[in-house]
Structures are given as structure tokens and as C-alpha cells.
Nucleic acid binder design. Structure first.
Lengths: 214, 214, 214, 214
DNA sequence: GATGAATGAGCCTTCATTCAT
DNA sequence: TATGAATGAAGGCTCATTCAT
């Protein structure tokens, strides 16, 4: 009674192995992101990541050739996921630009608050990384940025938005959206989610021409 | 004999000594701030600070009992200076709130860009420090924040500004003002100074009720 | 049924298996020798050897119980091969001792240069190995040495050679023959092959009584 | 009663400190050379060096910025000392070239045997070092080589020596002189010193035209 | 037999901090 | 006051070896 017809030599095994490996990689990435989010890049050490998933530090090197690579993988994961979600939101032209922008902002706020601002700050800090990584990060940032910009532009084009200086407006949008005073976070998560709507409303003013100041 | 009348005997010497010591402390603080601004907290080590002022690392410990203390002193210096300047601007009630707010924003933008965002990020990163320092930093931040808030409130009170949610508006003001993507800074200093006015104009919309959207 | 008469039942299979195993062992040995020759002992790791023959590192342990054993096997292979060839050359008494010595030297020079001096240096470096291996290496060296010595002795006996101190002469022969400044090798392969004849000629002087010095 | 005229401010202290430092550096160098000689480069670790002179490993970094630098310093020390001594021997033109060559060889033999062949092998192994160090090592080697060559040339010029191919002759001289089968060394130190004269005599044949072969 | 996974032990290096002078 | 010297603790990385599948 040999092997069922549906199964063939190595592929199945290879599949299983690959799946198992992928799961492990995902676990590591999750743990690493967690620690990274809690401690920031410099205070994150491989021992802690390893310990969280009950692995030896050396084993991490079975999956990632360096700390840098591991961290970069975390950023890649977060970056592509976030950009993907944002792109999906931005792409639905049946929704008014304003509403899409609101959705984008809310998603971003949620991401920042829940994934922790540390993760976000990884994208802004000039770590001494190999140029290849730097470039990839910039790429992810440009992508992220361009999603917001595209919706803003559509809004401007169809009269939903009015800006004097698009770059400045988006700069401020970015700042407001990503501003999370890390110090306060642990004790004020609730406040932030409550403030969420108010923050969004306020940010929208950046894209509306001001009325009379009385 | 330029000794203060109230002191006799050793105090005169003590005075000179104190002056000398204060100058040294100032030198150290300046060097430390410089390195901190250039490299960021984690890439700053005492050797480099000491070397810049031609001092031995061990000597630093005559003036500051720990790296934490030294860095904290830098933050204290910057924080009180900035807060002082801002307070002076905010205090002049002869100037319309709007103009004062503009001045505050511009000063803050300049500070961020010229003192380097690294210094600013020190105030946002959750270093693993003793609670006493953490509290002092929060205090400086609250002070800083309250200056902006006071001017905003005045503006609201006298009808210059209109906000739906003061906290949200100031949050966004803060974000926009402090947002400096560290990655891009070195190559885009010019852009930032050029953008300065546009950013200010855009931020002001946060405090003006939006007009008709078409 | 190509089974040897003496074996029955499982042995046939065992035979094939053994052959297969032997071939694999040979492959591994070849790869290991290659890496050893390229990188030297300390810069050779099992991963690289395994990779070259498209095998898992763990699999190496099916054939060799340790890195030491594997390296020793390489040395055994090289040692016995070289000693075998040399012995064959030395054994042909129809050839004058002098010509045989020349052939021996040339063969050794070729071996050093082509198999790389790294391989040769394995025989000279005092690796922290179990005494058993050390002893085996000494044995191979003694064997190697004795081949040269035997030809030299024959030459001395039949008047082809003249030496004052056989041991010293052979020592110097050895040194000259095995001396390959590793640093220079990659860029000077040509020089070495060109120098080959000159080196041999020079070495022969060790075995000829000097003429008048003026 | 202030300071004696002969003593001035910092220099004396600086002198003492420098002396103390120099002594320590010398101690470290000695210990490092010892370990290097016993174990070879790859099996030498900083812990052992530090331990031998009762220092913390971290302290070594007070004197040498890296393992490489420390090892290089050892080589520099040995290289310059040996070259210096050899140069002194070679320079005395009142002595026949032949006698000077004998002295050179004997000094080199002694050096190899007493400082251990490991030290010598450092000069021949292609460690993965920064090019700057590689170049310096080559320089020391060239210097060393040129000393022997210069004496040989003088000998050839004044008829003391006869060679067919100078390069080949020196190559063999080098090989014979530096050939010390490390494996055997610990047990045969005596043999080597006894053989010393015989080896020298044998090597001299490289520089004398062979007489009739009977 | 083959291999992915896991790891302990070890190594080089950094750095804030202490201390004797 | 000033500093050279010293160090413990920690961190990133490598590698031969083991083991379950």
C-alpha cells in the first residue's frame, strides 16, 4: 500500500516544510515586531525576541542572517500591509475623495496607535543601515505618501478640497496623523481612540478653504 | 575685590571656582547637545562628547554623575530656553493671537530644523530612564504645550480662531510643526525653509472654521 | 546475478549500497579538499562543503562523525595518493637515483602548487586534534620523508650523490620543495612553474659535493 | 616653596604615564606573541591573552583597537627586530659574504625555533586582513628577503658564491631556513639545535658550484 | 539516507562606570 | 580637578554538532 496517487515524492514534503518554515518566520516576525514596538530598535536585542518565542538566539540566524535583516523584514511586512490596505481604500473611486481621505487617516491612526509608534518611528529614524535597506524604506514611504497625495489630488481636482500648497498641506496631514507622543501613549490609549474623530475632523480643515474669521 | 559683600573668607574663591565650573558645565552641555543632535541618543557615547571638548571621559563624571543626567541636562537646557522664548512671544498681548501663534510656530520650526530633529525626538522617545527624569520631561512638554494652548485659547476667546475640538487642533498643530522626516532632512534643508511659510499658512487653517466647500 | 559467490541474501544490496556510499564519500572528500585548499582549515566550514555537493550539512554526519574526521580523511586521501605516486617513482631502480629524485621533486612541486599550499600546510600545522590523528599524520609524513630519503641513500651509495649530513640535506630539500609563500601564489603561478626547473637544479646541489670555491 | 626648576608641569607626568603605558603595551605584546606562538592565529583568543597578564579582555581594547591590530603589532615588533638584527649582520662588509650569510642563516634558524614557527607562519598565511596590513607584511617580507639577497649578491660578485639562478637559490635557502615541521618541533627542539650547523653547511652548497660527481 | 531545525559554547567588540593617582 | 586604566555586562554573530521527522 504505497503512496496515494494524489501525493508525489518531494513536493508534499517540501510544501509542508515550507509551510512550517513560513509559520515560524511569521512567529519570529510577530515577536520581533512586538519587541521592536515596545522597546525601539536600539533597545531590542535578539535574546529577547528569541526568548519570547522560546527559541535560541542562534536559531534566529537560521531564519534571518542578521538583526538588520530581521528588523527590515518586520518593516517590510508592516509597510506592505499598510500600503496595501491604504491602496485598497484609495482605489475605490465610487467613494468621494473626502470620505476616502477620512478612511485613510483613520486607518493610519489606528495603525500607529495599535502597532505602536515605535514601529512607525522605525520608518523615520536614520539608522545606520546598508543603502539597500534605506532605499527600500524610502520606497515604502514614497508609496505611502503617494497614496494620500493621490486622494488629495482627486479631491482638489473635483472641487472637494482646496489647498494653497499641496505639499505643505500633506506635510501637516502627515504630521498630525503620525504624531503620537510616545511618552504618553501607555496611559492614554483610550484618549487617543476617543480623540480619533476629532483629530480627523480637524485635519480635514487642512483641505478646506477657510471661511471668514468673523 | 569683586567679591559679593555677603560672602567672606573662602567664598570668594568658591565664587571663582563656581564660575569656572559653570563655564565647564556649559561647555560640556554644548558639546553633548551637539553630538546628541548629530547622532541621536543611542549613537552618542561619552567618549565622543569628552573628546570634543578635549576632556577625559572620566572628567565628565566630575560634572555629571551619569550619562542620563548629562543628557537630561541638555534637554533641560533646550527645554527651558525654548519654552522661555516661546513664553515671551506668547506673553505679548499687544499682538493679535494669530500673529503670536504664527511667531510661535515659526520659532518652533526653526528650532526643530536647526537644532536638529534628533534633539526634538529626545522629547518623544521613551528612554528607559528613572521616573524622576521622565516626569521632568513631561513637565517641560506640558509647559511647551500649554504655551501654544494659551495663545490658541485667547484667539478662540476673542474670535480670531474657531475650533471644534481644541485638543485635536493643537494635536495636529503639534504634529505638523514637529514633523520632520529625519531621512530627508540633510538633502532638503532648503526645501524646509522654503516650505516654512506654506506650512504655517496651512496650519493656520486648523484654527479657522472652514468655508463653503465649493 | 552479479553477486560475489561468497555473499548471499542481503549482501548484494549491501554491495550496491556500499558502492553508492563510497561514491558519496568520494564526492564529499573531493568537495572538502577543494574548500580546504581554497580557504585553509580555519576558514573552512561544513556548510560550504555541504553546499558544494548539494547536500545538507547534517548529511555529512552520516558519512563522517566530525569535522576532524572529515578533514583527516582528506589528508589521508591526499597523503596516500601522493605517497603512492612517489613510491612508484622511487621504486624504478632502472632509473638513476638522480633522475628519480628530480622526478620526485617535480611531482612534489606540482602537487604543492596545484593542490594549493593550504593542503600542504595542513600537514604542518599543529591542530588541536586527538592524538590518534596526529599520529597518523606523522606516519604519513614519515612515509613521505622516507621515500625521498631512500632515493637519496641509493644515490649516495652508488656515488651519484655526496652529502655531509643526510638529515640536513633532506631537511633543506624538504624546505625548498615545500616552500610556497602563500601570499604570492595567486599572482605568481606562472613564475612558479617557470622557476620549477631552476628550483630543481638548485636543490640538486644539496646532493653534490661543492667544487672549488674560486 | 613651589616647584623645583628642573621639573615642569605636565611633561614629567606625561613621561611617566607614557612609560607606564609603553611597558603595559610591551607586556601585552609579549603575552600575545606567546599565545600566538603557541596556538596560531585562529586559536588565539583575546581572553587568553588578557588572562596571561591578569587583565580584563576589555582592557586590551584600551591599548589596541582590535584583535587584528594587536596581532599586527606583534608581527611588526618581531619583523622589525629580526630585520634590524639581520641588517646589522649583513652590513659588516669587513666580513666575507659567506660568513655573513652563515650568520644570517643561524640567526634566522634560531628565531624560527625559539619564537616558534607559528610566529613565522603568520607571515606566510593569507589571513583575511585589511589591505593596509597585508601591504605592511609584504613590506617586512621584502625587506627580510632583500637582506639575504644582498649578501648573496655580494658573494656572487666577489666570487665567493656561484649560482645558476639567484632567485631559485634564495627560494631554496628560504625554504630550508624556514622549514620547521611544527608537528615535530615540541619533541625535537634539541635535534634542531644540533642540526643547526649541519643545515647551514648543507644550505651553503646552494651557493657553490657543484664539483665533479665522481 | 537525508534534512530542516535547533542550540550551546565561544568570540570580538562596545560602553557606561569606577578608581587610584 | 583631571585622567589613564580597568572592567562587568551586554550584544551580535558563527559554527560544529544533535535530533526528530
Amino acid at each position: 500500500m504505497p503512496v496515494p496517487a494524489s501525493d508525489t515524492g518531494s513536493p508534499p514534503k517540501s510544501n509542508r516544510v515550507a509551510r512550517r518554515r513560513d509559520r515560524k518566520v511569521a512567529d519570529i516576525l510577530a515577536a520581533a515586531s512586538e519587541v521592536l514596538a515596545e522597546r525601539g530598535y536600539h533597545d531590542t536585542n535578539l535574546d529577547e525576541i528569541a526568548e519570547r518565542i522560546d527559541l535560541s538566539k542562534a536559531t534566529l540566524y537560521h531564519y534571518f542572517p542578521s538583526k538588520e535583516t530581521l528588523v527590515m523584514a518586520c518593516m517590510e511586512a508592516v509597510g506592505t500591509e499598510v500600503n496595501g490596505k491604504l491602496r485598497a481604500i484609495a482605489a475605490d473611486r465610487s467613494v468621494p475623495a473626502r470620505d476616502r481621505l477620512i478612511a485613510l487617516i483613520k486607518y493610519q491612526l489606528d495603525t500607529i496607535v495599535h502597532r505602536s509608534p515605535h514601529m512607525a518611528s522605525l520608518f523615520r529614524q536614520p539608522l545606520d543601515w546598508p543603502e539597500a535597506y534605506r532605499e527600500r524604506i524610502r520606497e515604502l514611504q514614497r508609496e505611502h505618501y503617494s497614496i494620500f497625495r493621490s486622494v488629495v489630488r482627486e479631491g482638489v481636482k473635483n472641487g472637494e478640497f482646496h489647498v494653497d500648497d499641496e505639499a505643505a498641506a500633506i506635510h501637516n496631514l502627515y504630521g498630525g496623523m503620525n504624531y503620537v507622543p510616545v511618552w504618553l501613549r501607555p496611559t492614554r490609549k483610550k484618549d487617543f481612540s476617543q480623540m480619533s474623530q476629532a483629530v480627523v475632523d480637524s485635519l480635514l480643515r487642512l483641505f478646506m478653504s477657510p471661511g471668514a474669521a468673523t
